[in-house]
Simulated scan of single mutants.
Amino acid sequence: MKRLIGLSAIAMLALPTGAMAQRGWETIGFRTVGAGSDRDSIQVRGNERHRQIRICSINRPIGLQNVRVRFNNGARQDIQTRQILRGGACTVAKDLRGRNRNLRSVDLTYTKLQRGVLPPLVRVQAR
Rank of each mutant, 00 (worst) to 15 (best):
I53A: 00
I28G: 13
A9H: 14
Q114R: 15
N66R: 05
Q114V: 14
L118G: 12
V67N: 02
A21G: 09
T111L: 06
A11P: 07
L108M: 05
N66F: 01
L13W: 08
R86D: 11
V33I: 07
N72Y: 14
I62Q: 02
L4R: 14
G98W: 01
L121P: 09
D95Q: 11
R123P: 08
Q43N: 15
G36P: 02
I79W: 00
M12L: 13
L64D: 00
V33E: 04
Q80Y: 06
D78C: 01
R45C: 15
Q22P: 12
R60N: 09
R54A: 02
G18S: 14
L113I: 05
R123C: 14
G34W: 06
I53C: 00
V92Y: 08
R82P: 07
A35E: 07
I79V: 05
N59T: 05
R99I: 07
G34H: 03
L7S: 10
R123S: 10
I58Q: 11
R70S: 08
V122M: 03
C56E: 04
A75H: 06
I84V: 04
M1T: 13
R60I: 03
R70N: 10
L15M: 15
G46F: 00
L85K: 04
R97C: 05
A14H: 08
G18Y: 14
I42Y: 00
L13A: 14
Q80F: 12
Q83C: 07
I55P: 01
Q114E: 15
T17G: 09
I79G: 02
D40R: 01
V33S: 03
M1Q: 12
R99N: 13
E26G: 07
L13V: 10
Y110R: 08
L108S: 00
L96I: 00
R31M: 11
K112D: 05
R39W: 04
V92H: 12
R97G: 07
R60F: 02
S37M: 05
E26M: 10
Q77H: 04
L7G: 12
Q22H: 13
K112A: 06
R123A: 08
R97Q: 09
L4D: 13
Q125L: 12
L4V: 13
G98R: 03
R104W: 13
S57F: 01
